[in-house]
Design a protein around this nucleic acid. Structure first.
Length: 272
DNA sequence: CCTTAATCCTGGAAGC
DNA sequence: TGCTTCCAGGATTAAG
C-alpha cells in the first residue's frame, strides 16, 4: 500500500541511518527482483550513500558509484536492521553498512522491485521521465491539461502515474471525497476550477499524511520499523456502509478502474 | 491511438 | 478445527 506519503516517510527514515555510510557488502537473496544489472556493484557495494531521492512512489538510493531505483509495489519495504535484528520474511536484498547495521528490501508479493542505473541522471531520463509531476509540483493548469486528454473516470486518471505521480487507491478516494467529486466523473469534463481544488486537496492530504508518518492498515512500516498514524484520518477509505462524515448518507462501494472504491452518493458530484 | 481486463504474488480473512 | 475460496493492489501486458 505504499503511496507517496509512505514512500516519502521511508525516504526520510532510511536516510537517517544510511546517508554518508559506506556499503561494505550487498547480498542478493533473490536475483529476479532486480531488473537491469543485478550485480552487487550495481546495487552499491563498496560505495558511499550520497542521497536518497523520490519521485512519485519510487525511490532512488544514490551512491558515488551506483543508482538503485526501488519500487515498493504493494507489499515492499525498505528497513534498517540494527545489530543482529532479524530480517523480515521475504527479504530479497541485504545491504551491509560500515557501522555494522544493515538495510534490507523485503517484498512478500513481489509486485515491487529494483532497477539499477549508472546514475540518478540516467534514472531520471530513462525511467522517471515517463512519470507525471509529483502533486506538490503540479500546477492546476498542468493537471487540467493532463485530465483533458482522457475520457477515463477521474479516479482512473489520478491513479495513472503518467499524469500525476504518487497517488494510490487510498489517497485518491480521500482526495475525491475532499473535493466532492464522484470517482466516475469524466476526467476531460472537469474544469480548471476542479483541477484547482484537486491540486489543493492532494497537497493538503499528502502533506498531512507525511506529517503523520503515512498510513498503516496492515503491514506498512517506515525505514525504522515504525507504523504510520494517518489511517485514523480517513474519511471514506475502509468505511463502506458507514455514514458519510459530511452529510450522513451511507457510503457506497463500487469498482472504478478495477479498484475498490468508496464514495458518498450524495455529496460527491457526478460529472456527465 | 485509445480503452478495459487479466496478470503477477502472498497472506490474511471469510466461508463452509 | 481445517480446508478452500476470495480478496487486497501497482504497474505491466494483452486484448478489445
Amino acid at each position: 500500500m505504499p503511496e507517496l506519503p509512505e514512500v516519502e516517510t521511508v525516504r526520510r527514515t532510511l536516510g537517517e541511518a544510511v546517508l554518508g555510510r559506506l556499503v561494505s557488502r550487498v547480498t542478493i537473496h533473490r536475483k529476479d527482483i532486480v531488473r537491469g544489472s543485478a550485480t552487487t556493484k550495481a546495487l552499491g557495494s563498496s560505495s558511499t550513500v550520497q542521497t536518497i531521492e523520490r519521485h512519485g512512489k519510487q525511490l532512488a538510493i544514490v551512491t558515488d558509484a551506483a543508482c538503485v531505483c526501488v519500487h515498493l509495489g504493494m507489499s515492499g519495504s525498505l528497513r534498517v536492521l540494527k545489530g543482529n535484528q532479524k530480517p523480515p520474511i521475504h527479504t530479497h536484498i541485504t545491504w551491509r553498512l560500515d557501522d555494522g547495521n544493515r538495510f534490507v528490501f523485503a517484498d512478500p508479493r513481489r509486485f515491487g522491485g529494483l532497477w539499477t542505473f549508472n546514475s540518478l541522471t540516467t534514472l531520471r531520463n530513462d525511467r522517471w521521465s515517463r512519470l507525471g509531476p509529483d502533486p506538490p509540483e503540479i500546477t492546476p493548469s498542468q493537471l487540467h491539461r493532463a485530465l483533458s486528454t482522457t475520457t477515463r473516470p477521474i479516479k482512473a486518471a489520478l491513479l495513472d502515474q503518467h499524469l500525476v505521480a504518487g497517488l494510490g487507491n487510498i489517497y485518491v478516494d480521500e482526495v475525491l471525497f475532499q473535493c466532492r467529486l464522484h470517482p466516475l466523473a469524466v476526467a476531460c469534463d472537469l474544469e480548471l476550477a476542479d483541477a484547482q481544488r484537486l491540486v489543493r486537496a492532494m497537497r493538503k492530504i499528502l502533506a498531512d499524511a507525511i506529517a503523520a508518518g503515512g498510513t498503516t492498515l496492515r503491514d506498512y512500516v517506515d525505514g525504522a520499523g515504525r507504523t504510520g498514524g494517518w489511517q485514523k484520518n480517513r474519511q471514506v477509505h475502509g468505511r463502506s456502509g458507514q455514514d458519510c462524515l459530511r452529510c450522513g448518507s451511507i457510503l457506497e462501494t463500487s469498482s472504478v478502474g478495477g479498484r475498490t472504491t468508496i464514495s458518498c452518493p450524495t455529496c460527491q458530484r457526478q460529472v456527465v
